[in-house]
Design a protein around this nucleic acid. Structure first.
Length: 740
DNA sequence: GTTAGAAACAATCCT
DNA sequence: TGTTTCTAAC
């Protein structure tokens, strides 16, 4: 049911303009998801469009799931037939059906960035490239950008001209694609590019999808790259009922190939496009919106728009600067604790945002120590963890024997006494006979110079074959369990007994329940399907706004979300804006960073707090950073806690910047930067809730017994005999020991 | 072939 | 600081 009275005039226009190309410029918090869902409902219920003919594309599974459930709520019957998916899963779905027409097997595996790197390493070795001069990552970056621009190895070679380095990259690119094809694998960029290729080359497939997708909608359009643009253009190519929603001020994925021209020149590509602007914000207070507007106004070359709200003024934006990052973390944790205790809000009403994942560690430690429930989004992806990747590699080997990477990963895990020499002999044999690594293993006895290693290989092959046999009659879950049992993977970890090993076992248990869950919820469960789902999950997908925890994540991760209380931490020049973009000579980089700041500010509904530290430890070195220039761009009247005169106007410029920093460094070291924590200065010393003989837990060393406590000034030196790490001496304030 | 300890090295953000 | 790669000894 569509309730138009709930929509403002512009939103209604977005809902009712269903025919032809439409560009909706939707400012932050202007209710774009509401427009998209209502539009879909309108198409189905009022215009009688079969849900089968509607496609909606988002960037994350979480956004897709959310949109899907909201559509189903609105239309009741048939809503689940709408194809709502991410770019990547949409492409996979098409490719799984037709990619054999491009010479791939439809059971292809998807490589993540670790896999890409491993493959690239092999290639560099084979081509005898000195990876000290040309780094693997450089090749991968260039290749990725090329793919985002739909350039295949040939195109790349052509544009290289006579440039030596470019030609070298072209060779590597070609070799890389060859290896992927041989392994029957694709990387993330391939998923899009191959689909575009398929649709361009194969008229039959193209017409089938064009006929199907009579209405196409794209969310977060500002983040699309050239390949994705082409994909959309092709899919919507027959009926051209294409509705894209985006905000150029929130374009923050240039590094991933996002092409801001897609949104800026939409009207020239589709001259008859209808443009609708959503400028009323329903999320933030006037103060927060003013802060956001002022900051983003410093950018040039954007579609002008001004967000406004009917909401109240609200609290000022708080700014706090601390001596170091520890104090900063302490303040944030304490502030949240106080507000929750005061009944002002629940934990889930808070989000702490930062620029880099590395900043999460201190916050996390502090939250653990303060017993604040939190959820860390991002960092090391669950599926990128060693133990998970190992088990997945087994499953991949079982599923697709052509994936050499997966096979080599687990061939000697657990240790089977198959070393590097044997491995390279097999690889060589496979290469010269033009067969897969796994097939070579099957004929291990024939391989010259392998000797007794063949007897070590046989059980591995048997294991894989047995599992393949199992799949005929049993669910993938049974295979995984059998695998864990047979390889002794968990048993080995249990024997280790460390905290780390325990965490790994927990992860494995989680993998088991994920697979079980998949088998329950999927209508046609298969090993291949599970591996695909796993390859495409993003960190953000695991975030659940209904659980009562504080969320910790990067500013990038926060896009599309909203919270009553937001902390933007690490507001320092060199951190945010990042060192990389300050030193870059491309002015656009700073603008992108500013957009990121805009995204961060507009996440907050009621209260926004910015924090900074004077000194921060970065890669083992203490850095002294000035307050972020973005803080200085905030209008004075929205700020509290920060007196502008401290933000000296005489901030040295780029060239003198380093010198000044150096001077500050030496001075600071001379006077011994204060080692006291914020807690100590605020509370005049600390009290311990444990004594000699008590059992305590340390975040890293695990559980141990306190053997000695020595008082020293405001702190205590505590000696703990840890169960697994031996005896350590530490200061109570830093150790954050917890009584158990 | 395996392992532990030393040395080198690293520069965001993500599907 | 934390992780990956190298080296030497078992």
């Amino acid at each position: 049911m569509i309730s138009t009275q709930m929509l403002n005039k512009e939103q209604q226009e977005g809902v009712f303009t269903t025919e032809g190309p439409v560009l909706i410029l939707a400012g932050a918090g202007s209710g774009k998801t509401r427009v998209l869902t209502n539009r879909t409902a309108y198409l189905i219920e009022e215009k009688g469009v079969d849900p089968f003919h509607i496609l909606a594309i988002t960037f994350t599974n979480k956004a897709a799931a959310e949109m899907k459930s909201r559509i189903e709520e609105l239309v009741g019957f048939g809503g689940d037939a709408v194809w709502v998916s991410t770019f990547h899963s949409c492409c996979v779905r098409i490719l799984r059906r037709y990619v054999d027409r491009l010479g791939f097997d439809t059971t292809f595996t998807i490589y993540d960035s670790d896999d890409q790197k491993a493959l690239m390493k092999d290639i560099c070795k084979r081509l005898e490239i000195d990876t000290k001069i040309y780094k693997e990552k450089m090749f991968l970056n260039v290749i990725s950008s090329a793919k985002n621009e739909l350039m295949d190895p040939n195109d790349f070679r052509l544009q290289a001209g006579g440039d030596y380095k470019q030609l070298k990259i072209a060779t590597v690119y070609a070799e890389y694609q060859k290896a992927l094809l041989k392994n029957n694998a694709m990387d993330f960029d391939d998923l899009i590019m191959k689909t575009v290729e398929l649709l361009s080359v194969d008229a039959e497939v193209r017409e089938a999808y064009q006929e199907r997708f009579r209405y196409v909608m794209v969310d977060e359009y500002q983040d699309t790259n050239t390949a994705q643009f082409m994909l959309i253009k092709l899919l919507a190519g027959k009926y051209n009922n294409l509705c894209v929603v985006g905000d150029d001020d929130q374009s923050i994925y240039k590094f991933r190939g996002a092409n801001i021209q897609n949104i800026l020149s939409f009207e020239s590509v589709y001259p008859n496009a209808k443009v609708i602007k959503l400028e009323q914000n329903y999320r933030s207070t006037k103060t927060i919106l003013k802060a956001a507007n002022e900051v983003i106004a410093n950018n040039k070359g954007r579609k002008s728009k001004a967000l406004w709200t009917e909401r109240e003024e609200g609290a000022k934006v708080a700014f706090e600067q601390f001596e170091n990052a520890q104090e900063e973390a302490y303040f944030i944790a304490n502030d949240i604790r106080k507000r929750v205790a005061g009944g002002e809000a629940g934990y889930s009403d808070f989000a702490v945002l930062y620029r880099t994942n590395a900043q999460s560690r201190l916050l996390e430690e502090r939250f653990v120590a303060s017993n604040i429930p939190y959820k860390l989004v991002g960092g090391v992806n669950f599926y990128a963890r060693k133990e998970i990747k190992d088990l997945l590699a087994y499953l991949k080997t079982i599923d697709n024997g052509r994936d050499d990477l997966a096979v080599t990963r687990v061939l000697n895990v657990p240790k089977r006494g198959i070393g590097l020499t044997t491995q390279s002999r097999v690889a060589e044999y496979a290469y010269t006979h033009d067969i897969s690594f796994y097939d070579a293993l099957k004929q291990a006895k024939e391989i010259p110079g392998i000797g007794k290693a063949a007897t070590k290989i046989a059980p591995f092959v048997e294991l894989i074959e047995h599992c393949r046999g199992m799949l005929w009659s049993e669910e993938p879950l049974a295979v995984l369990k059998y695998l864990i049992e047979e390889t002794g993977y968990v048993a080995e970890l249990e024997a280790e007994g460390t905290e780390e090993a325990k965490a790994r076992i927990e992860n494995i248990d989680e993998l088991i329940s994920k697979l079980a869950d998949y088998e329950q919820t999927s209508d046609d469960p298969s090993l291949n399907g599970f591996l695909e789902e796993v390859a495409l999950v993003a960190d953000i997908d695991s975030y659940d706004e209904n659980s009562d925890y504080v969320v910790l994540m990067t500013l990038h991760g926060a896009k599309g979300l909203e919270f009553p209380n937001v902390y933007m931490s690490g507001m320092e020049d060199g951190i945010f804006p990042s060192y990389m973009c300050i030193t870059s000579d491309d002015r656009d980089d700073l603008e992108e960073e500013r957009r990121l700041c805009y995204v961060g500010i507009t996440r907050a509904k009621d209260r926004l707090t910015m924090t900074a530290a004077r000194a921060r430890m970065l890669r083992g070195e203490t850095q002294y950073n000035a307050v972020s220039r973005f803080v200085k761009e905030l209008p004075e009247e929205v700020l509290s806690g920060y007196i502008k005169k401290h933000a000296t106007e005489d901030m040295p410029r780029e060239d003198t910047y380093r010198k000044a920093k150096q001077a500050f460094k030496t001075k600071a070291f001379g006077t011994q930067p204060s080692m006291q924590t914020y807690a100590a200065r605020k509370a005049e010393g600390i009290t311990l809730d444990y004594g000699v003989g008590d059992r305590v837990r340390h975040i890293k060393f695990g559980v141990g017994t306190v053997t000695q406590i020595v008082e020293g000034g405001r702190d205590y030196e505590v000696t703990v005999d840890f169960d697994t790490f031996g005896t350590k001496k530490m200061f109570a304030m830093f150790a954050k020991l917890q009584k158990v």
